[in-house]
Design a binder for these strands. Structure first.
Lengths: 342, 342
DNA sequence: CTGAAAGCGCTTACAG
DNA sequence: CTGAAAGCGCTTACAG
């Protein structure tokens, strides 16, 4: 005997809070409170509402909630890559830090592209995120403009900001690059090459660290540098080690800006009969799992990416809650992993 | 001379469509149309609205749009892992397929956990997704219940469904496992071990394929199987190759359920002086980049993960548009990559 | 502790 | 092609 549905209804057909309230015999907003702030409702009504929720299979409508409360419960995360294990570890840290809260995490893969970053951020802004997690310190003018005009709390990940206003969690890419180079110098190498790929801001900082160390030791030579924009892969490392040996035949050691390149370089040396580290020392960056297991095992820089994600998300959550953070720059450091390859 | 803001306003302070409309001197809904369906508005008004949008820096409110239109423009994607390169490739395919559309892609990492999958899906359901992309064919009862009661279009990725109602894009994990085993048998091996980790449904299907091939050849022996629930890693592969050789010293070949394990097994053999493939043939699954470059290079199964993501997203988009798909099961196949290690 | 009313910012259906 | 009205499903103030 149900009444005929008005033909022109715009209702979604889903169970609404109003239906729950009716079932429980309370006002809509009592039902709302019973769900979002259970402590403010008497036990009797609370259980009645909870039962109605269960019976009806009520699922809150996030869009309606966001619209009414002006709180999206969305956190947008922008990373330059998902195929790079570094950033998936960062995401795992973020996920763990935010696990208890009811946040919707929007994961955006910018693919190292400013245009893609702008596009994704533009879409994410439509969701009025409560907070944003960014990779890197530098961004396009449009991105910066979207960010500042929105007034949303932001935390930058991966590197240390020089501007104290900019909250950042990471470690000094420059210092890490410098430290690895100094390690190689300390091992007695003079002709130390650097292979950089992708040329994102972190690679460039590592390269600067390399140059600083080389200059300080009076060893700098542009012929020892190879910088290419291609994404870093094993295949590229295999290719570039050959190029390095052509352009600097007396090269004794190569600092690869990340482990993928180093692995490729080592595999290629094995094929070409070039002893590593005997004839050529090779090291990488980031300490990917394979680095500890390869033969030779790979000397590299261990980086706290999971921790970066975790701490950045924790800091962001505090900001969203309106807390004044004690520290605005969290330096998680890095670890030089001395192994067999260099 | 602006009027004093009412103290109790709930307005977000952001630029609204109404503000844009006022600026352009049109009705709100004309402004709305000028933005979402520009063709239905005269050129004069359209440009006036567009200019107002630019001047005011208007950003549409997605929550309001979703609420009013009953279209979330959200697609939820659930994958079991982000650290596994297979799934990041799937995600890349999805991203590319949906690039032109204005979808918000919700990426959820279930970490191979049913509980996590339920939790994420529960949260995503609050956003009323227009479509859902799932990994795998089997899901917990609660997940299935959420899915069926929601009536949302769903496409399953990675394996082929037997139920024709279930749309799926992938390849037969069973057949792939069987094919690799038959390849090893064809190479003359009799004592062929299988190492499975994680024990997700895909690994189990590959193991079934292995068993089927072994039984068919009259070579089946439970002592040749190692199945562990730990996540598959290089370290685990290194450990398990030793265990296999203990429990089946006459083992001639090992089929690892994925490349990480195979890499670890090979590295460990190198350290232990076990010749690969001379003394022990080792093969993997998925053809990760390192497999082509290692020494020995790794025999494995190439899988079309990028394509899976792309095709699944394309199919889902058609479903969302209300199209009746011609094929409901898209088998993208697999490729046996014969290399040096087996 | 509980509730009637108003409003969040947009789009839908309808009419002109 | 354009617009006044109503409504999406929820929460916020306010009052009792």
């Amino acid at each position: 005997m149900s009444r005929i549905q008005p033909a022109k209804s715009r209702a979604s057909g889903k169970v609404t809070l109003a239906a729950v309230a009716e079932r429980a015999g309370v006002a809509t907003m009592t039902a709302s409170r019973a769900i979002t702030q259970p402590d403010m409702v008497s036990e009797t009504l609370r259980t009645r509402v909870q039962q109605a929720v269960a019976e009806l299979g009520y699922v809150p409508n996030r869009a309606a909630r966001a619209l009414a409360s002006a709180q999206s419960k969305v956190i947008a995360v922008l990373v330059p890559s998902l195929s790079n294990a570094v950033f998936t570890a960062v995401l795992a840290g973020i996920q763990d830090a935010l696990d208890a809260d009811d946040y919707q995490i929007l994961i955006g893969n910018t693919r190292y592209s400013d245009a893609e970053e702008e596009k994704l951020l533009g879409i994410y802004m439509q969701s009025n995120p409560d907070g944003i997690l960014l990779s890197g310190l530098t961004h396009s003018a449009r991105v910066q403009q979207m960010l500042t005009s929105s007034q949303v709390p932001i935390v930058s990940m991966m590197d240390m900001a020089t501007n104290p206003e900019q909250l950042s969690v990471g470690f000094s890419q420059f210092q890490a690059g410098q430290a690895m180079t100094q390690y190689l110098i300390g091992k007695g190498h003079r002709r130390i090459g650097f292979i950089g790929a992708q040329l994102d801001e972190r690679t460039l900082k590592r390269a600067e660290g390399y140059r600083a160390a080389m200059q300080q030791a009076g060893l700098a030579d542009p012929a020892l540098e190879i910088m290419v924009e291609d994404p870093s892969t094993i295949a590229l490392g295999a290719e570039l080690v050959g190029r390095m040996l052509e352009q600097a035949p007396d090269c004794q050691a190569i600092f690869c800006c990340n482990d993928d390149l180093a692995h490729g370089a080592i595999f290629q040396c094995q094929r070409s009969g070039i002893a590593v580290p005997g004839r050529l020392a090779i090291c990488g960056f980031n300490d990917l799992p394979a680095s500890a297991w390869m033969n030779p095992s790979v000397t590299t820089v261990g980086t706290p990416r999971y921790q970066i994600g975790f701490e950045a998300a924790t800091l962001l959550r505090a900001l969203i809650k309106g807390e004044q953070p004690e520290v605005t720059q969290i330096d998680l450091g890095f670890t030089l992993m001395e192994r067999e390859s260099a």
